[in-house]
Each structure stands twice: as C-alpha cells, then as structure tokens.
C-alpha cells in the first residue's frame, strides 16, 4: 500500500508541481568562491552541464558546448559546466579547463551536492532552465548527435 501511494505521488508530481530550481542555489567556483544562480538567470536561460575529467563522453560533448556558448551568449544564454571530480582528481580540472580555454564558466561539485540536488545520476547530465528558473529540458548521457537536439531546445527556450 505504501509503495502504491508513493508511486501515485511520483506520477502525479509533475502535473501538480512545477520543476522550478531554487534561484538562490549557489555554485562553487574553482577558486572556492560562490556564485548564485540568480546572477545568471537575470541574463536569460541557463544550461547546466555536469561532467568529470575521467568521463570520455563528457569530453566529446564539450566542444559542442563551447560552440553553443559562443553562438548564443549574446542572446542571453549562459552555460555553466560543473565538474563532479572528487578531491582526488580535482587538480586535473584546472589544468584541463585552462588548456582548452572554454568560453563557458566552470564550477566544481566534489561531493555531488548540486548534482544530487538537480537529480543528476549519469555522466554527463544536461539541464536547460528557462529565465524563470523552470526546468525546460533534461538529458542523461551523450551520444554523438545529441548536440543537435540540445541546440533545438536552446532555440526554443530563447524564443519563449
């Protein structure tokens, strides 16, 4: 009975409640300072990408994120790339990101607190949030070609 109640609750949940992200959510920059999601949402939609230095598909996807960031930055889109590398491999993040000179902002989440809060389970996880903080699109994993769907969703959210 308890399982049925819980299942019903989960099924009805998306219909009853909006999937809005807490705009005061704070992200940790590599230098240890924190930045709130508010700051980015005030400029427009936000694409949050979770990745790690040991994740092959994540690295494949990054070139596309960089291209999309350059293309739509002036339209108000911000891409926030959050590494879930633990303290054991955290020093590799700085080296990787600086050598690539990506156009988007990079953050760290070594204990996966933000990753879990935003229901990430698989690497990479992408979450597109509209300017009101509501989740517009979410996608688990990366296979070549997913960037086409991602770009069409970005265009949809920018045209809202």
């Amino acid at each position: 009975m308890k399982a049925l109640v819980l299942l019903g609750f989960l099924i009805l949940n998306p219909l009853l409640f909006s999937q809005k992200i807490q705009s005061s959510l704070k992200f940790n920059r590599i230098d240890g300072r924190k930045i709130s999601l508010d700051k980015y949402l005030s400029q427009g939609p936000v694409l949050i990408n979770f990745w790690a230095t040991w994740c092959g598909p994540c690295k494949k996807e990054m070139i596309h994120l960089d291209r999309l960031s350059k293309k739509y930055k002036n339209n108000g889109l911000n891409i926030l790339s959050i590494s879930i590398d633990t303290q054991r491999s955290l020093s590799e993040v700085k080296r990787y990101v600086r050598s690539k000179r990506y156009n988007f902002d990079v953050f760290i989440d070594p204990n996966q607190q933000i990753f879990k809060k935003l229901n990430g389970n698989i690497m990479p996880t992408n979450i597109l949030i509209d300017r009101n903080g509501v989740i517009f699109w979410m996608h688990y994993g990366y296979i070549p070609g997913d960037e086409v769907t991602m770009e069409s969703k970005i265009l949809e959210v920018l045209n809202q």
Partner: peptide, 14 residues
C-alpha cells in the same frame, strides 16, 4: 507546504 505554498518538488529514480 505543497498545498498552501509554492513548493518545488523534483526527484529521480534509479
């Protein structure tokens, strides 16, 4: 809280 307030709820199942 869900009924009377602006509660946001999300989750995942693995």
């Amino acid at each position: 809280c869900m009924i009377y307030a602006q509660l946001n709820l999300s989750g995942s199942y693995v």
